[in-house]
Design a binder for these strands. Structure first.
Length: 462
RNA sequence: UCCGACUUAGCUCAGUGGUAGAGCAAUCGGCUGUUAACCGAUUGGUCGCUGGUUCGAGCCCAGCAGUCGGAGCCA
């Protein structure tokens, strides 16, 4: 029996074939007097295969009823196309219709806005653009694993549900099985979480880092790659409530090793996608961001700029540029500052390090100057912060002091502090927002369009 | 959450106080191997919701909702 061949493989053939079988979804149909051109896409690649359906097909009257969105199986000869736009086409010998899409199929043979397609996010992967985006997303995920696995990093599955109610990275979603309309109360009127599923408050993770550090101080080099949740009311094209984060952690490593790893990783992933998704990337260069190839070439061919936070402030002060937020030592870099550095000043990715300790997280290693911490952010054109990382404070006493300074409770971090009690070593890591890397690689401007089913404030559809 | 813009046919939009429009899609028909094919015809509307001003509101005013953009928070 004839087996199905994917379209990506057929189009890579170097000669005609007497009989092939393709299955897929109809993108468009053009009728002539005695035959029809039907373009079928099976998602294996951007391109469609053109089917020639002649009127001598026994079910030609049914074939003429085919609509955009219908599912079909076609067998016939793969022949060189007479038309100019494609190498091969299939002359149908047998044309099976799985299912006709009714005339209310919402995807038309024309360009749709991203906003409309978001409202039908369950169908948008059937468009050229979103099909391409999600093939790239798959390749980019694979590249992340390849990069780390080739370097001996172990993949660690950190928990999605966490009992630490303060991982120090923003608002959390609460997880509960309590009846919200009839909450159990303690004597002083507070919610009695001892009656909840876990016997205490639980949340969705905002970061796997603390867990990751424990595994790095056992397996050496590790990485996490999984979903992350932030309950922040952020309404921007760069934030989602559910997103995927990559968090490597290296034992016996300092801030320089961390920066090297971040730079190597971004470069590796960009190169991998360019090598494996050339057709899909071309669509984005052509229709989404005409500067995409230049941007990606810059990332691959030139070293990232590396400066300290203090130098970044000085550069901006001397630039003469008017900023809405005046650059001053002690204030965190604003979006306009990040974009100035990456887009205008360096015109390439830039790593800013050694931030004042006041504006960074408690676990970052205090530098010898006593004022700054060994933190590093990778800023890229158009997106701003792609990566945030640091060398971790490995001194037990200093870490406890930083926990106190930040108004946090030492007992909540008791398990985490064991990494500093027992065989503490210098170590470093970072967090990379996977969707932001997708935006970088595709040129897509909105995070809602690089994740299959986006979750944002006021929106959990599909 | 703050600031701003927008919301009219399935989609993209026009319509500045007096009888709701176009292109595309869909449907039907035509057509020489087409490429988002082409040509002709037909169908399609509670103008986001609620209230107000007016003889009369898609249009003016208020509130609400949603979407988008910018900012903050961050990945």
């Amino acid at each position: 029996m004839l087996k199905r061949t994917k379209i990506v493989k057929l189009l890579a053939e170097d000669k005609e074939l007497p009989e092939v079988l393709v299955k897929g979804w109809v993108r468009t149909k053009r009728d002539a007097k005695d035959f029809s051109f039907i373009e079928v896409n099976d998602g294996s690649c951007l391109k469609n295969i053109q089917i020639i359906a002649n009127s001598n097909l026994p079910n030609y009257s049914d074939v003429k009823k085919i609509t955009t969105g219908s599912s079909v199986a076609v067998s016939g000869a793969l022949v060189a196309s007479q038309g100019g736009s494609q190498k091969f086409e299939i002359v149908a010998g047998k044309f099976e219709i799985y299912s006709l899409a009714p005339d209310d199929f919402p995807l038309q043979k024309k360009k749709h806005t991203d906003e409309f397609l978001r409202s039908i996010a369950h169908l948008r992967p059937r468009t050229n653009k979103y099909g391409a985006a999600f093939r790239i997303r798959s390749q980019l995920s694979y590249a992340v694993h390849k990069f780390f696995q080739e370097r001996g990093f172990k993949y660690v599955h950190t928990p999605i549900i966490t009992g630490s109610d303060c991982e120090g990275a923003g608002e959390m979603f609460q997880v509960t099985t309590l009846d919200l309309n009839n909450l159990p109360r303690t004597k002083d009127g507070k919610v009695d979480y001892s009656k909840d599923f876990f016997g205490k408050e639980a949340h969705l993770t905002v970061s796997g880092q603390l867990n990751g550090e424990m595994y790095a101080t056992a397996l050496g080099d590790i990485y996490t790659f999984g979903p992350t949740f932030r309950a922040e009311n952020s309404n921007t094209p760069r934030h989602a409530a559910e997103f995927w984060m990559i968090e490597p952690e290296m034992a016996f490593a300092d801030i320089n090793d961390d920066m090297d790893l971040a730079e190597d990783m971004v470069r590796f992933c960009v190169r991998d996608v360019m090598e494996n998704c050339a057709d899909d990337l071309e669509l984005f260069e052509k229709y989404v961001d005409p500067t995409l190839k230049t941007t990606l070439a810059t990332i691959m061919d030139s070293d990232f700029a590396r400066i300290t936070y203090t130098e970044a402030i000085e550069i901006m002060q001397k630039s003469g540029k008017k900023f809405e937020y005046k650059p001053e030592y002690g204030v965190d870099l604003q979006t306009e500052h990040e974009r100035f550095l990456a887009e205008e000043y360096f015109k390439k990715p830039v790593i800013v390090r050694d931030y004042p300790k006041e504006i960074k997280a408690f676990y970052m290693k205090l530098n010898p100057d006593g004022k700054t911490v060994a933190a590093m952010d990778v800023l890229v054109p158009r997106i701003g912060e792609l990566i945030g990382g640091s060398q971790r404070e490995d001194d037990y006493q200093k870490l406890v002091k930083r926990i106190e300074e930040n108004g946090m409770k030492e007992e909540d971090y008791d398990w985490y502090l064991d990494s500093r009690r027992y065989g503490s070593v210098p170590h470093a890591g970072f967090g990379l927002g996977f969707e932001r890397m997708m935006m970088l690689v595709t040129g897509i401007a909105n995070i809602r369009d690089v994740i299959p089913f986006p979750r944002t404030p006021n929106s959990v559809n599909f």
